[in-house]
Amino acid sequence: MGVAVCFLGVIMSEIILKVENLSKYYQMGEVTVKALEDVSFEVVKGEFIVILGPSGSGKSTLLNIIGGMDTPSGGRVLFNDELITNLTDKELTMYRRNKIGFVFQFYNLMATLTAKENIELAVEICENHIDIDEVVDAVGLGDRADHFPSQMSGGEQQRVAIARAVAKNPQILLCDEPTGALDYETGIQILKVLKDVNIKYKNTVIVITHNASIANMADKIIKMRSGKITDVIINSDPVSAERIEW
């Protein structure tokens, strides 16, 4: 019954992302390293997805390909039914510009720009962005917007990174270990921010992590190991960020 409901839910809900038989190989001399092997799954619009796996499981590679930052060796990725894995460099750039928001583990802010300027940098090139001040409030930056990254804590910098990604009004927000460099309390705050923007702006959020506790807040959990999907779990009762513990 649950599966049927899930299936029906899939049919009724809009599929924003389809990954079909995706593979990525690296040649290291005579050795072929399989970073991804025959990965397939779908993502519904507005879902909060966690891709869970240990280090080297291929989750970052998967995220990079979905985000148009890398190209696969085989398989397809369709975004809103548009094939993105055969786009040209320029088309991929436009895809990243207008459709995707990226949050990195180590924030990767521009050191010589203030928090607000970092956000403005991202939206200057966007066609249809969200008001910057609204996003600054949404992530809880408050009066830190005119500070430089070197004047901020790790948590504050990650809020800026999230604001930078969200302000572009992306359809998918991709987060690579967003709490990896943060302590527990700060990490929880960041997860709450991500969930808040997921609800407020109705964008799809994909978080990759090795921290199983975080998976509890997801709508769907995709487990990976050694470049393959080992399990896809629909979480019918996702918990709020504040209730997560590790």
Binding site: G67, M69, K90, T93, R96, N108, A122, I125, C126, K168
Partner: peptide, 16 residues
């Protein structure tokens, strides 16, 4: 290098 990667990730073209 990393900043340039971020700019590309944000959607800036190589030319820009």
């Amino acid at each position: 290098r990393t900043s340039i990667g971020v700019l590309k990730a944000l959607g800036f073209t190589d030319k820009e």
